[in-house]
Amino acid sequence: MTATTTATDSNFAAEVLEADLPVLVDFWAEWCAPCKMVAPVLEQIAAEYAGRLKIVKVDIDSSTETARAYGILSAPTLNLYKGGEVVAQIVGAKPKRALLSAIDPHL
Rank of each mutant, 00 (worst) to 15 (best):
L17C: 05
P22G: 03
E48I: 04
L78F: 02
E65W: 13
T5M: 11
I103S: 01
C35W: 02
L80I: 04
A33M: 14
N11T: 03
G83Y: 12
A102C: 02
L24N: 14
N11Q: 10
E15M: 07
G92A: 04
V25D: 01
E48N: 07
T64V: 15
G83K: 04
G71D: 02
D61L: 08
L100K: 00
L107N: 07
A14W: 13
L100T: 05
S62M: 13
N11D: 15
P95F: 06
A3C: 09
D104K: 15
H106G: 05
V86R: 01
K96I: 07
R68Q: 14
T6W: 12
A98F: 13
L42T: 07
L53T: 12
D59R: 01
D9M: 12
T77R: 01
D59W: 02
S10H: 14
A29T: 14
L99G: 02
A50P: 00
V38W: 00
K54D: 03
P105L: 14
V91K: 05
W31P: 13
W28S: 11
V91T: 08
L100F: 01
W28T: 14
V41R: 09
A75Y: 06
L99C: 03
A75G: 05
C32I: 09
T2Y: 12
L80G: 05
A39P: 00
T2V: 13
M37C: 10
K36N: 12
A46G: 03
W31S: 07
L99T: 01
K57E: 08
K82P: 03
F12K: 10
V25H: 13
F27Y: 15
T5I: 14
E18Q: 14
V41K: 09
L100R: 00
V16A: 06
I103H: 09
K96F: 08
V86M: 07
A13W: 06
A14S: 09
M37Y: 12
A69I: 00
A13E: 14
A14F: 11
L42A: 08
R97N: 07
D9G: 08
A13G: 10
R52H: 11
P22N: 06
W31I: 01
V86I: 14
A7G: 15
V38F: 02
P40D: 03
V91G: 07
R52N: 09
D104I: 12
P95G: 03
A33F: 13
R68T: 15
I103M: 02
D61W: 04
E85A: 02
V87T: 00
A46P: 00
T6I: 13
I60S: 11
D26L: 05
T4Q: 12
I55K: 10
T2A: 14
P76Q: 04
